Structure formats: structure tokens, C-alpha cells
Computed example of a mutant assay.
Amino acid sequence: MDAKGCKHIILVHGSCLGGWYWFKVATPLRAAGYRVDTPDLAASGVDPRPLQDVPTFRDYTAPLLDLLAALPAGERVILVGHSFGGMNIALAIEMFPEKVAAAVFLCAFMPDCTTRPSYVLQKFQEGNRQDWMAYSEMEPQDAEAKLSTSSMLFGTKLAREKFFQMCSPEDLTLAISLMRVSSLFLEDQQVQQPYTQERYGAVRKVYVVCTEDYAIVEEFQRWMVENNPVDEVKEIAADHMVMLSRPGELVQCLQDIAEKYA
């Protein structure tokens, strides 16, 4: 709740895109009386920095961390991370657990409290590398040796068939036109210590499984829940870009979570 008594929801985007893609969700939530923020992470969306100027995962997450740091004392938010955004909200929770009423992992990577943050990313790569590498458009963006080896840019074929298969052609066209080079910051997260049970582990968590997700498939989403049990699991029959393909169902889901946990 913020100082005016409004429930506050922060929506965090995934790799290569930006806060813009929440527009079909943020608009009705605001109309329903919620305060909604959709920050662009560093070198994402309209943030002017190139990825070369964002050397660490914490630097990449800084806009979200700054937003939480600026909240008035006592204000607590519903923090929603989509896709790789789950990694960003995990760091934010570890740093500001007192400011998070509940964390929502929306078909998102979700680390645990026993392994390094990179663990879930490495497990994902082990099971999906050959499948994803078949999409030759998704390649490391390191031609000048200035970027992390885990930098990437999603190609049109991968986006259409694995991420946006239930979205409209217009939404896919918009997303392709706005994509930017991003990174998993894998090397950086491999040297970070596990998040603590006392901070990250103490915040209530909801995992929203998207059952038609071909990017982070349902089986892997449910494995992450088994690996790091949460307070509640919800389901939406949607692709990876649920906020574009099934916005109404996602809005209702987030309203239910906000009313229960905020």
C-alpha cells in the first residue's frame, strides 16, 4: 500500500524488451485503482545506455533497485517478474525484503536459497540449448568482443514460434521492432552467493505457470517450483508473452494476488 492507500504493483520485464510490453495489463490495473510501475531496466526499453555500459547484473537491475529504495518507509509492493525478470526481482527481494508484500514469478526464472543465482539458468540451458540453438537467429552478440558472452538478441523465427505464438501479428511486429541486445549476466551470477532464507526466502511468493509457454516450458516452470516451493501456484493457458496474448486473464490473476497479499 502506498501513502494514499492504493495497492502498488511493480511489473518487471524480461530480456531484450522493456516495460512497454505491459501496456495491456498496466492500463486496466490503473483504471481499477492500482498504482502500477513498469520500469525499464538498464539498456532496455527506452533506457539510453548501451549494454556495453552495463557490466554487472546489479547494474542491469539498478532501475528497479532505485525504485524500491525510493519508496516511503512502510510502503510494500506486489513485485512481478516475467521471464528473466524473475532474476531481477529475486535480487530486489534479497536487498529490500521489507518492501515486498509478495513476489510473483510469471513464467519466470526463480532462484532458490541453496545454490548460486546462476543455477536455474544453467539447468535451463542444459535442457534447451540444442533446441534453441536450432534457431540460428539467436546468437551471442559479441562481434567486437565488447559484450558478455551470454549476451543475445532474439530473432524473428524464435520470437514467433517460441515466445509469441498466441499473440497477434501486430504485437509480434511491435516487439521485433523494439528488441534490444540483452544478457543473462551468467558469468556475474555464477560468482554471487546464494540468496538468504532470512531475506529472499522470507517473502511470500506466487508462481504463475503459463501452460502453453514454448520458451520456458511448463515442465521447467514446475521444476523450479519443486526446487524452491512457493506459497501459491496459479495457471494461465497462455504463451510466454501472456501480458499480450491473454491480458484480461493476467489482470484478474494479479488483482486476486494483490487483494490476498498486499
Rank of each mutant, 00 (worst) to 15 (best):
G18M: 06
T211L: 06
E198K: 15
L68S: 02
F185A: 05
W22G: 05
R160H: 05
S168K: 13
P63F: 03
V206C: 11
F23I: 04
D53M: 11
S183L: 00
T196I: 10
C210T: 02
D131I: 12
A102F: 05
R199Q: 12
F220E: 09
C167P: 10
V80M: 09
L254T: 02
W20S: 06
A26C: 07
A32Y: 02
A175C: 14
E249Y: 06
F23Q: 12
R58Q: 15
L172Y: 04
E170M: 11
S83A: 15
Y34D: 13
Y21G: 09
L67P: 03
S150T: 12
F109Y: 04
T115I: 08
A26L: 00
V100A: 02
Y34W: 04
S150P: 00
V191Q: 14
I257G: 03
L254N: 02
G19T: 07
D40N: 09
K205T: 02
A215D: 14
L17A: 13
A92Y: 02
P194C: 02
S118R: 06
C16M: 08
A237Y: 13
F164A: 14
F124L: 08
V206H: 09
L254G: 01
V225G: 00
V80I: 11
E219M: 07
L17P: 09
F124R: 04
S151R: 12
A73H: 01
S177L: 04
R49N: 10
L68C: 15
Q52Y: 12
W223S: 05
F164T: 07
D256H: 10
H82I: 05
S151N: 01
Q125H: 07
L91H: 01
A215R: 09
G5N: 04
Q193S: 14
A3R: 15
E249A: 11
A134E: 04
